[in-house]
Design a protein around this nucleic acid. Sequence first.
DNA 1: GTTCTGAGATCTGCATCAATTATAATGCAA
DNA 2: TTGCATTATAATTGATGCAGATCTCAGAAC
Lengths: 224, 224
Amino acid sequence: MNKIEPGLGINRRYLHDEVVDRMRDLIRSGDLEPRARINESELTERFGISRTPLREAIKILATEGLLELLPNRGARVASLSQSEIEEMIEVIAGLEATAADLACRTITDEEIAGIERDHHAMVVAWKAGEEGAYFSLNRSIHEAIMAASRNATLGGIYASLSGRIQRSRYAVHQTTEQWAQAVSEHERMIELLRARDGEALAVLMRAHIRAKTPVIAENFGATS
Amino acid sequence: MNKIEPGLGINRRYLHDEVVDRMRDLIRSGDLEPRARINESELTERFGISRTPLREAIKILATEGLLELLPNRGARVASLSQSEIEEMIEVIAGLEATAADLACRTITDEEIAGIERDHHAMVVAWKAGEEGAYFSLNRSIHEAIMAASRNATLGGIYASLSGRIQRSRYAVHQTTEQWAQAVSEHERMIELLRARDGEALAVLMRAHIRAKTPVIAENFGATS
DNA sequence: GTTCTGAGATCTGCATCAATTATAATGCAA
DNA sequence: TTGCATTATAATTGATGCAGATCTCAGAAC
């Protein structure tokens, strides 16, 4: 994008930022499982760093919600209860509805055409049983709408929240009816995007995400 | 056995949590102004602590968005540009719309009655020119709806975001027309709450917050 | 007036120490 | 053996001295 920021910006200046990224990957990949304790000396050795940047990284990840701090007992990978996951999905639905509403203000015809292409590719992938491609294209559609909202604050909160419930890759289990409904909702979404009807699109988007709650919750497999 | 807590409220396990709270207060009260540089040694002395917990607190506040880090130059109080404030208001509008939608599922008649009482008191306060009471009651109404959403995740994000654009107290400047519209929207909101019509209430709430954008943005007085 | 330079201040990260607390290991009684 | 209390060990929290890197800014050189 734009690395034109004068002076401060993209360069990996902070060691703890590097550590945050690496730990995030460890958590998301499942290498560090939920409720796994974080051992300070083990990780300092693993990363080849001292305690100072590691501790800063731990505090940052705890603030983001990926770790939880246990006073005088260190930290552990956060685990989410079923109800917390459902809460988060409601919030995500709200954020996507907001993005959809905002996107209608400034989205271009080209962007809508791109979403439509992704949608058709997604249908093809589903019929071919390529769940990986299906999942990736579905996400790409939602991310395109988020990007079209032209709201970095919204996008940041969305990324942080969805990052917390998307650990490693999941096989998506949907019934044929669920899939058919999702497809028809996508098609209606494209219509509403063309009409730039943000209000109606927001309502539809919220319902669309909500309908996926059982799928997401099931695949997460929380144990709290 | 006889462990008496040292007077400062709840069991503050972490020193850096204490520091985070105190610094948050300093920023919100305006004691630390936007763009003010954070001096490590000055604050360690001021708080009577060492660098370790202070540095952790700075990282936490930066993650929350209240501070921004300047590599090799420390940190400063974050300042928001006009467009960032407008972005945040859109997100807040989305969060409140989500809360309104969810509240319709489980809100009790008593809670609705409480909101109605606050609304009437707010109208009285406005007519009496008591801007402080008006502001406080208005906020209390919105917080009641947020609480009725029964979604702690949503509430947390909302609190964090609104905390970033609500520094100290402001005199609310609204035209008579803006006020009249806000009042009629509140009354319509109460109707929709009674009808438990979440979908319509979400749409109204989003528009209601949006209409306040110029007021909030003006009072914030950002200088990026 | 502009550019260069260097001293001082500040920040980042490392290593280590002391104090507190949690976890285990052990010993003893029932 | 089992349950409980005591002790020993380990881990965490917080403080601090130190080295290297970077920024700031005044003063010199052009």
